[in-house]
Nucleic acid binder design. Structure first.
Length: 844
RNA sequence: GCGGGUGUGGCGGAAUGGUAGACGCCGGGGACUUAAAAUCCCCUGAGGUUUCCCUCGUGUGGGUUCGAGUCCCACCACCCGCACCA
């Protein structure tokens, strides 16, 4: 090896070519080896790869390469989540076609990914906007329809009356359309739904078996599914109607002081018909946000209908309100208000003067205590007739039993989970394969006519759904009767696309979505890696879709992802100045970081250093992976992604940090050049301490990689590197260096290949195909251990003892310590605690 | 608002209830060099002491324990999700 520096600008591409030519990362479905499916969430082709992608894919890549070295047949695919709104936005803003824009982005991002040297099987690549892919998706959708899991019903959307278009929640800002600024209305449309609620119980139960999912993701899903048990009963109204309500707290029924119904509840509609004020109030509720967050934080508003409801036990008349915080979608769309024991009811009652009654208290004596806030905790029933003295749980059961016995109510399970609305009134998505016929109704497109492809000739000059206004596309004939009919112009939610892509990666027949047997070979995914932002929707939908396919007999398993890992974001500090009262941000590459400040390169004047936050275009705190790779090569960038921060936490990018990684790449390169100095690699044993360190590191790094503790693996590699550098030349040292090449191979594959091809005359083949080093268990244990000696729990001395020394010996050694004796200072020893191989604590 | 998470030196972080700060970054000092880059060595939680050590210290306040960053209770701060962004 003559070069003193590793040059990634020529080595990276050379090894990437070598892997490609050898088909190194091609996954063979017929392999006899044990399989491992490593998957990172596929990206939306926004145009450029960002550091978050690099981090996500580097983690998966290290695992995939490591698994391969451990003898697994690894499937590590990549593709594109290519449908979605940004492409339509680009079409509107730049006058480009969504398809062309997307294809161009994919090409750019693919070449970016290739430069990082990921061990991907590119032969399985696809984009969800490929007619082949979405055609199969349409077929699956029809299968689910046939199984009764797809239906249509009316549902509300955000309607922008100026742009004449449906808006996503994120396009509604303070109740106004993001483009038009017009007040957003709620409008009812016929929409397609998937019956995810049929699987609510199963999706909930399934969480229990997902041991290798983060606890917090399981909890989030559990809360999302939101199983609750309560009582459903009806109030008799003074106008002769009956209104069913649902409550999870029937034990507090004697504390009910009002009844509230949702704005779109039939009772509300009935009142509005004869009362313009009520109608106006309902209109008010329809404006403003629809999201749960907005409803919860918005001021509680109500309209007193003048109607009263008869309390089922006391017969007392309770006022009936229309309220903005009651949701038609949840329960029965009506509630009994118990201000004493529900936060929202308390706020509402305070505002509208309803009585706040205490019906739960810590003890019977506290029954008369005043209430300054809602008390939602446990206690016993008071002021509650026959419930007095019962616990909350007893009272719930007692009220339910009484209601059922008397026939005016019944115990019910209610789910927060709602059916999945998949209709989108947009162009750039999978067309929903149905036809509307004047005589036959809604008719599925026959499978032999799939895919229903998107028309190419569309314009985005006017707002609204281009499919709806396309001159010819929607006109067709009914497959049933042959009469003129119209195509469905809604497209599918892009979450449908990402609910089965992992199946298509595993198996790609031309004539069907996937082959059941081939899928069974690869699935479930051993390790799925992605952002926490997908903790609920994507992961829940994918779990549902898999169950739905199992239900209709197309799959043999229910859970697609055996292990899940959610990685943190890549963050960066921000650089800004206030110019004319406005904050102007600067890119890191425009800024020079000095000691504890920063200056703009253009004018040498200081800029303000802001908080370290998620990289975002608006704050300009982004770093382009291409620039980093141009400067430092792929391996330094990969190493940075793995160093320091635990993978589940945020990773702050810094120029100094990547410089450090670059120095380490070169440091390794110099060390790798020293194989053979002091003897050939075959005979270790000359340097027992180094042998031990080497084997301990191999075992620890393996363990860390398998637990995705990359930052710990990195720290151990630094330690071994330092130990080798300090060691005198020997066969042990040469062995250690060759081992080190293996250890870094999954993380810095280009450097490792370059070293492998040259060390000690050159290794056999590619190191990507090499086996992970064997560990000698005898070398994992040290024969000497350091014992901490404490007096009253405080460290006073340390001593070295043979491993496995007896408690008596350790105690004697500890008491012999001068420092310890000085600390004890003649006090009587009451107790000595000895933890073998760890510590001695003397208690006086 | 509801749900979830996080908090340890100047910074990122490490630590089966058992030596807090491994490892990296920044910073300081030195070696090499005509000089620089690169590289190598040493120091680097705070305070006291002055080369022997001592005291304090893991968001805050309590508690359990021989011993708490770790377990329990209460609080504070920040971050994420909330169903049409992906």
């Amino acid at each position: 090896m003559t070069d003193t520096r590793f040059d990634p600008s020529q080595a990276d591409a050379r090894w990437q070519r070598a892997w490609e030519e050898a088909g190194t990362f091609h996954a063979d479905s017929n392999s006899a080896k044990p399989k491992s499916y490593v998957l990172e969430m596929f990206p939306y082709p926004s145009g450029r790869i960002h550091m978050g992608h690099v981090r996500n894919y580097t983690m998966g890549d290290v695992l995939a390469r490591y698994k391969k070295m451990r003898g697994y047949e690894v499937l590590h695919p990549m593709g594109w989540d290519a449908f979605g709104m940004p492409a339509e936005n680009a079409a509107m803003e730049k006058g480009v076609h969504p398809g062309g824009w997307t294809r161009e982005n994919i090409a750019n991002m693919k070449s970016q990914l290739k430069r990082i040297g990921f061990a991907l099987d590119w032969s399985r690549e696809f984009a969800t906007c490929d007619p082949e892919y979405y055609g199969h998706e349409q077929a699956l959708f029809l299968d689910l329809y046939k199984a009764g899991l797809v239906y249509r019903r009316q549902s509300e959307v955000n309607w922008d009356p100026v742009d004449m278009t449906v808006l996503a929640n994120e396009q509604v800002i303070d109740g106004k359309g993001w483009r038009s600024g017009a007040e957003v209305e709620k409008r009812k449309l016929d929409q397609w739904f998937l019956k995810i609620t049929d699987f609510a119980e199963d999706l909930l139960d399934g969480l229990g078996a997902l041991d290798n999912w983060p606890e917090k993701v399981r909890l989030m899903q559990e809360n999302w599914i939101g199983k609750s048990t309560g009582l459903e009963f009806s109030f008799d109204l003074s106008n002769g109607d009956r209104v069913p309500v649902y409550s999870t707290r029937p034990d507090t029924i004697f504390g009910a002081s009002f009844v509230a119904v949702a704005a779109d509840h039939p009772v509300a509609q009935g009142v509005a018909a004869g009362n313009p004020d009520a109608a106006a109030f309902i209109e008010l509720c329809k404006r403003g946000g629809t999201t749960a967050a907005e409803l919860e934080t918005a001021e509680k508003l109500g309209f007193d209908t003048g109607i009263t409801a008869r309390h089922p036990f006391t017969g007392a008349p309770l006022p009936v309100f229309i309220a903005n915080f009651v949701l038609m979608d949840y329960g029965t769309g009506a509630i009994m208000g118990v201000p004493g024991h529900d936060d929202r009811d308390f706020e509402f009652a305070t505002k509208y003067g309803c009585p706040i009654l205490r019906v739960i208290a810590a003890s019977a004596e506290a029954a008369g205590d005043p209430m300054s806030e809602a008390e939602t905790g446990d206690g016993i029933c008071v002021n509650s007739d026959f419930l007095d003295g019962m616990s909350v749980e007893e009272a719930k059961a007692a009220v339910n039993a009484r209601a059922e016995a008397e026939g005016w109510g019944k115990g019910t399970t209610v789910w927060r989970l709602r059916d999945w609305g998949v209709s989108r009134q947009r162009y750039w998505g999978t067309p929903i394969p149905f036809i509307h016929c004047g005589t036959c109704g809604v008719v599925p497109v026959p499978k032999d006519q799939l895919p229903v492809t998107l028309p190419e000739d569309v314009d985005f000059k006017t707002p609204g759904n281009p499919l709806l206004r396309h001159p010819t596309w929607k006109h067709t004939t009914c497959p049933n009767c042959g009469a003129a009919a119209e195509r469905e112009t809604d497209t599918l939610d892009t979450f449908v696309d990402s609910s089965w892509y992992f199946l298509r990666f595993a198996s790609q027949p031309a004539d069907k979505p996937f082959d059941r047997d081939e899928v069974a070979k690869w699935l479930p995914v051993e390790q799925y890696i992605g952002g926490i932002e997908h903790a609920i929707l994507h992961l829940l939908y994918a779990r549902f879709w898999t169950r739905a396919l199992q239900h209709i007999g197309q799959l043999d398993f229910a859970e697609p992802f055996a292990s899940l890992f959610t990685q943190g974001m890549v963050t960066h500090e921000t650089y800004s100045r206030v110019v004319g009262g406005r904050t102007v941000y600067f890119l890191p590459e425009e800024v020079e970081r000095t000691g504890n400040g920063a200056t703009l390169q253009d004018d040498r004047q200081p800029v303000e250093i802001g908080r370290v936050i998620k990289m975002s275009k608006s704050k300009k705190n982004t770093v382009d992976p291409d620039n980093i790779i141009d400067t430092y090569g792929a391996d330094a960038a990969r190493w940075f992604m793995l160093s320091d921060s635990p993978p589940e936490r945020d990773l702050p990018w810094s120029e100094a940090g990547i410089e450090g990684c670059w120095r380490f790449v070169q440091r390794l390169w110099r060390l790798f050049g020293q194989v053979g100095a002091g003897g050939a690699g075959a005979d270790a044993g000359e340097d027992k301490a180094l042998d031990r360190k080497t084997h301990q590191t191999v075992a620890a790094v393996a363990q860390d990689i398998e637990a995705l503790g990359f930052n710990k693996a990195v720290a151990r590699i630094y330690e071994l590197t330092a130990a080798i550098e300090k060691a005198a030349p020997s066969a042990s040292r040469s062995n250690a260096i060759v081992t080190l090449v293996h250890l870094v191979a999954p993380m810095m594959p280009h450097l490792a290949e370059e070293a492998w091809s040259t060390v000690g005359g050159g290794g056999e083949g590619l190191i990507a195909d090499a086996a992970w080093p064997e560990v000698d268990p005898a070398l994992l244990v040290d024969d000497q251990v350091t014992i901490a000696v404490q007096h009253m729990g405080k460290l006073r001395d340390t001593l070295t003892a043979p491993k496995g020394a007896s408690k008596e010996d350790l105690e004697a050694m500890a008491l012999a310590s001068e420092k310890v004796q000085r600390s004890i200072d003649g006090a009587a020893i009451r107790k000595v605690i000895v933890v073998p191989d760890r510590l001695v604590n003397i208690v006086t």
